[in-house]
Design a protein around this nucleic acid. Structure first.
Length: 426
RNA sequence: GGGGGGUUUCCCGAGUGGCCAAAGGGGUCAGACUGUAAAUCUGAUGGCGAUGCCUUCGCAGGUUCAAAUCCUGCACCCCCCA
């Protein structure tokens, strides 16, 4: 068996483990492990990537991964790592969220690999059947309140004066603990992994299994993902970086990684790619020698975009990148342009605006939303910041006619380095 | 209740009768440089049919050839005395 634990260790993916001997235990035979995902949205985002990749690595090493989506626990809200009581989601929303997340997991895990095929479970399937009294008798009975109160997730919330902790959220760890026992019963799952804020919940499950089943289960936590500047990984000014193409386009996703700071790129390569130790080390050495080439970022972006959006998504992103950063636009069709500029605002105008003297560049910039007023448009042009189909046009009096179209009906306007807008003449 | 100060263009903040679309800074936008980085430098920054016209200095009136600037009333904010 592949020594998964030492692999995870050099990748920096181990925060804590519940047992010193876990490495040997994992080498003995294929084990089953699980990670829980909170279904707060209908897509996974970069914040989930670390856990997902961990499951993936375990599977590649010959173990069986289970991804648990918390259809039931999501109804309650995990207090770990949160400073405020969580809003409850409707059952409908939850169902849609679970579905959306499940679809994306298929890219990371192999669901058709014999003995170690990945499994996707929803804890609503067993939790939903529990009666309140039944749960209190079977599960609640085994939880000393003083132990529960000592958990970080609970204590930190109780210490705050500005936000409370409801009984509902307080009970969360019981649900997660029971999940672990349930997965042990149903699938022989013996290991739970999770973010470092999950330590308390994981150990709660281990304790419960010892009491109920007299078995020793295992847990490990993954470090919290932060960037060198202290901000959260996977966040941009416009929000989270999602894995769903309709929330974060392949191009935007690709660009997020391309733009990663030098200080974070080594860590991300180890965290998020399947590249081996030697590949990563030599890549980083080459990157340091010539950081301007962004070789490490490019490789990271390539690998991740291919994993999340497939080879096709990657090539779209790469083509869009070429165009966005200078390549002149010609000999492209409407559909190619639409694909490349999928993220760019566009506006349709009647085609006859191009006839006669044509459309003035000033009006075009205003119509496209690249200038708030004609004065602003005029300034942009004068200062050399206006581009038609990626070619600078510095003459204020320019009029655009049918020959200026980049394709059958599309005109590509740009103001400054990267503010694009499309005008479609239909 | 009495006394004083304030309200300016996206923000802060100058401006006390014409030279004010209004200093300066921040922000923003564009350009140069650069690694699609950071820093730096330069320019721009109310609108428009543009050597001019229109709108803007808490709100409403008034004085004046001329008001962000003076007068009256109103609204809101701050400080001091009771």
């Amino acid at each position: 068996m592949h020594d998964i634990l030492s692999e995870l260790t050099w990748r920096g993916l181990i925060n804590q483990t519940t047992d010193e001997r876990m490495a040997d235990w994992l080498m003995e035979k294929p084990r089953t492990l699980y990670v829980g995902f909170d279904p707060t949205a209908d897509s996974l985002h970069v914040g989930h990537l670390l856990a997902l990749m961990t499951l993936r690595r375990f599977q590649q090493a010959g173990h069986r991964p289970i991804a648990l989506v918390g259809g039931a626990t999501g109804m309650i809200g995990d207090p770990s790592g949160k400073s405020e009581e969580r809003k409850l989601l409707s059952e409908e929303t939850l169902r849609a969220n679970v579905e959306g997340m499940a679809r994306q997991m298929k890219r990371f895990l192999d669901f058709d690999r014999g003995e170690i095929s990945a499994l996707l479970v929803n804890n609503y399937d067993w939790m939903g059947k529990f009666s309140y009294l039944g749960f209190l008798r079977d599960v609640g009975k085994h939880f000393p309140v003083n132990v529960m109160l000592a958990k970080d997730s609970v204590r930190s919330r109780l210490e705050r004066t500005d936000s409370g902790l409801s009984y509902t959220e307080f009970s969360y760890m019981l649900l997660q603990a029971y999940d672990f026992v349930q997965l042990y019963d149903a699938h022989g799952c013996e290991l739970q992994a999770g973010g470092s804020d999950q330590w308390g919940n994981i150990t709660a499950g281990i304790d419960l299994a010892r009491r109920l089943r007299s078995v020793q289960l295992y847990g490990l936590t993954i470090p919290l993902l932060t960037k060198s500047d202290g901000t959260k990984m996977g966040k941009t000014e416009s929000g989270a970086v999602w894995l769903a193409a309709d929330k974060t386009s392949p191009y935007q996703f690709y660009q997020y990684w391309i733009n990663l700071e030098d200080a974070d790129v080594d860590k991300c390569l180890r965290f998020f790619t399947d590249l081996g130790r030697e590949d990563i080390e030599s890549l980083v050495v080459r990157h340091m020698a010539d950081p301007g080439r962004r070789e490490a970022q490019r490789r990271l972006a390539d690998e991740l975009t291919r994993l999340v959006h497939g080879a096709e998504g990657l090539s779209t992103a790469q083509r869009a990148t070429e165009v966005f950063f200078g390549a002149e636009i010609h000999e492209l069709s409407d559909s190619q342009l639409r694909e490349i500029f999928a993220d760019v605002p566009s506006k349709a105008l009647p085609r006859d605006r191009l006839s006669g003297n044509g459309l003035s560049l000033i009006d075009a910039l205003v119509e496209a939303g690249l200038a708030k007023s004609k004065g602003e448009a005029r300034r942009t042009i004068t200062q050399g910041g206006a581009y038609v189909n990626n070619r600078r046009v510095a003459i204020v009096e320019t009029n655009l006619g049918p020959s200026d179209l980049a394709s059958e009906t599309v005109l590509v306007l740009r103001s400054g380095k990267k503010n694009y807008a499309l005008l479609r003449f239909e």
